[in-house]
Amino acid sequence: MTRRRLLILLVVIFVFLQFRLWTGSGSWEQIASLKRDIKSQRQVNAELQRRNERLYSEVDSLKNNLDSIEERARNDMGMIKKGEDFYLIIEGQ
């Protein structure tokens, strides 16, 4: 009789643990989902890191290279040097 109760208790515990293993907190599915999220976040981080490196390079170039400043002024602000002629060509459609 006591062996039967012990066996039933062990089966109930086993079923409960199996249920938690497959569906509960820390389950296999949750772990797989977290691994996918980590992989995705690492890709985003790598992309942002490359962007940051380009920006740092651009800032360094602007700090140390007058040609970069001149190019930026010409492209972004439409500035021209003294004595230069500016021609704006508008293409017709």
Rank of each mutant, 00 (worst) to 15 (best):
M1F: 15
R3V: 13
R4W: 09
R5T: 11
R5H: 11
R5E: 14
L6G: 01
L6M: 11
L6E: 12
L7V: 09
L7M: 10
L7W: 07
I8S: 05
I8K: 08
L10F: 08
L10E: 13
V11M: 12
V12M: 14
I13P: 01
I13T: 13
F14I: 15
F14C: 15
V15L: 14
V15H: 03
F16E: 06
F16M: 07
F16K: 01
L17M: 11
F19N: 11
F19K: 02
F19G: 04
L21D: 09
T23M: 03
G24I: 01
G24S: 04
G24P: 01
G24D: 02
S25V: 10
S25I: 08
G26D: 07
G26A: 07
S27G: 08
S27F: 00
W28D: 05
W28E: 05
E29H: 05
E29R: 02
I31A: 06
S33G: 00
S33H: 02
S33T: 03
L34C: 02
L34N: 11
L34G: 02
K35E: 15
D37P: 00
I38V: 08
K39Y: 03
S40T: 06
Q41V: 04
Q41A: 06
R42Y: 05
Q43K: 03
Q43R: 03
Q43V: 01
A46Y: 04
A46G: 00
A46C: 02
E47P: 00
L48S: 05
L48W: 12
Q49P: 00
R50F: 07
R50E: 06
N52F: 13
E53L: 13
E53H: 02
R54M: 12
L55E: 08
L55R: 08
S57N: 13
E58T: 10
D60R: 13
D60F: 11
D60G: 07
L62Y: 09
L62N: 08
L62Q: 09
L62F: 12
L62V: 03
K63W: 10
K63P: 00
K63L: 14
N64I: 01
N64C: 04
N64S: 12
N65Q: 12
N65E: 09
L66W: 12
D67R: 15
D67S: 15
S68H: 08
S68D: 05
S68R: 08
I69F: 07
I69R: 15
I69G: 05
E70P: 03
E71P: 01
E71I: 06
R74I: 03
R74N: 02
R74V: 04
N75F: 12
N75K: 15
D76M: 14
D76Q: 15
M77H: 15
M77I: 06
M77K: 15
G78H: 07
M79C: 10
M79Y: 11
I80T: 14
I80F: 09
G83R: 03
G83I: 04
G83S: 07
E84W: 07
E84P: 03
D85R: 03
D85T: 12
F86K: 15
F86Q: 15
Y87R: 02
Y87T: 13
L88K: 06
L88P: 01
I89E: 08
I89L: 07
I90Y: 05
E91D: 08
E91R: 09
G92W: 00
G92A: 04
Q93R: 05
Q93D: 12
